[in-house]
Design a binder for these strands. Sequence first.
DNA 1: CCTGTTTTGCATTAAGCGTTGCAAAACTAA
DNA 2: TTAGTTTTGCAACGCTTAATGCAAAACAGG
Lengths: 191, 191
Amino acid sequence: MARPKSFDETEVLQCAMLTFWRLGYDATTYKVLEGRTGVGVRSMHNTFGEKDELFLRSLEMYQAAAKSVIDQVFNPPGIAAIEALFSGMVQPKEEEDVANAGCLMVNTVFEVADRPEPIEERIQNYRSMWKDTFRLALTNDGIDQAEERAEFLVGALWGTLSQIRLAGRTQAGAPMAKIVVQTVAGWKPSI
Amino acid sequence: MARPKSFDETEVLQCAMLTFWRLGYDATTYKVLEGRTGVGVRSMHNTFGEKDELFLRSLEMYQAAAKSVIDQVFNPPGIAAIEALFSGMVQPKEEEDVANAGCLMVNTVFEVADRPEPIEERIQNYRSMWKDTFRLALTNDGIDQAEERAEFLVGALWGTLSQIRLAGRTQAGAPMAKIVVQTVAGWKPSI
DNA sequence: CCTGTTTTGCATTAAGCGTTGCAAAACTAA
DNA sequence: TTAGTTTTGCAACGCTTAATGCAAAACAGG
């Protein structure tokens, strides 16, 4: 009935998400994405709309992936899952290309100063997801003060992810970058 | 003999430094600085040259200020000084305007992806300054493994500063931002 | 083949930023 | 006052990026 798209939409979206993750918001231009996906600027703009919409959809895809990891690791929810999460973040780094990109949401907080409402809302939602996960795991194992401790754990997680990206971005931090991967239980930003 | 400048050079430089610190590299345009200092774009460009030169001089001014703080706190150099440094970072926040800007050098690592040689060199130099400071303090008190422990302390300091800026930039981190100030022993970015 | 719809490529617009040219303004020293 | 030097304001240029208009190309279905 009409001319079909020459590319897979979710595939291109994933590439955009990974590029935002690795390169940051500013450095990820439609032109850069054209170079990575082979899809023309006009076509991407046609299907994804404005840049912020593409970015928002990238954040959503990122969160969905994180959620599926949570479902695996926190099954059942408990202290053991929390331990597995944090210990899973320290691993020898094999491939050079698997960089220490940290967390897309945390990076965004650092790099994007004035965040549009939908973006900020998504970040808060993501943070809540983690806090809820921790709280449930704590209460399931009968730990008290679950609320405060969940808050503490989110702070620990996000702070750690900050440090991971910092290490990956400084020459002096290179040695650390070789043993600490931003991996969340096997989930790496292979690009 | 000739028309004099209508502004104090170091005063404007300090304003630039604080603006880079608070708003980041990108958001600090000559236009923004004109709004803050009242000095015309052309005049600033005339005296400070290209933006990267102004930024480099800002980093130098920042480091000089940090060095004078070090000279005060680490006098004499020792474990007590290290304790004073870290405990000085946790203080109730009085003025709302004193934000959690973290550390200009650390922020730059996060925000500026491709850093020119002189900028990167300055950051490394700054890091070395802190490492040397810690090493001296440790050896002066007869602590062994001073080299590794100094490296550890720099990591702890920079990581903490990352978390401080992160907290200052998220709505969810606001409660933390109220008790953790980026103050390094009384040195605040009052702007 | 033909028709209708969508994609795609090219060019363009608009905005922001760093940077520079130029001439008028401002000031000091004689 | 005058001469000489520097600052300053205005405008413009070049560049990058986001976003859009438009017409040709590509395709599915009749």
